[in-house]
Amino acid sequence: MGIVISFGIQKGGVGKTTACAITAHLLSKEARVLAIDFDSQGNLTEFLTRRDIYDFTKQTILEAIQEKNPTPYIVRITDNLDLIPAEDILSTFSRWLYRDYKGDATQALRKTIDMVKDRYDYILIDLPPNLGDQTINGLTASDFAVVILQSEPFCYSALERYLETLTVVQQRTNERLALAGILIAMSDGRAGIDNSIVDKAKDEYGPMVFDSIIKRRSRIKEFVLEGIQDSTKFDQGVLESYIGFVEELKQRVNQ
């Protein structure tokens, strides 16, 4: 049975999608992985397929949920990595949920994922940067949540609010939800403010924070165009902190 892990925080541009995509890529080296793009921006779709998101119009996670059958919407990326894409139309999810969906509005994604859960070892969900029906559905479908913390002040203030949301979801819609941990991403070790936020997060949240810290690297942006590369020593160095994170993540979710 696949372990469902969501990547989120109520703040955009902090590295959620990048972390989700690279984690999916690394996990798929030794396990079967399904990545679900649950953000209407479709960045995970673009990252993993390197195609225009409109190539997937009417073949997205929205249709998978509406038809209660994800199988026709699964796109094969590599032998071990599949994707269910997203594009702009996912922004109509709430309207569909309250107008047409018959059932508990928090459980629609979970029911869809349950149908393919036994085909994968890991199912990763990339969540949007706002709190709404997509995030609530994503967390309700998850066994674990990875919370991304970019070491900058706005993101730090969003962290506690997001953890409160996880607590509410755990109490109300998904008792089995657990925090895998807080991943510090896009950190600039040369900036004093970044370092003080990293220290503050470790001080206040202790072992909830992953030891691995993702540094800001411009090469990562090129991966979006070229695909994730790991054949050169330089690229292996770029991926090193992600590899460390994935090892920690595996340990935490497989306990």
Partner: peptide, 9 residues
Amino acid sequence: KADKFKSLM
């Protein structure tokens, strides 16, 4: 804060 959210771990 670690205590506040320990039910999540």
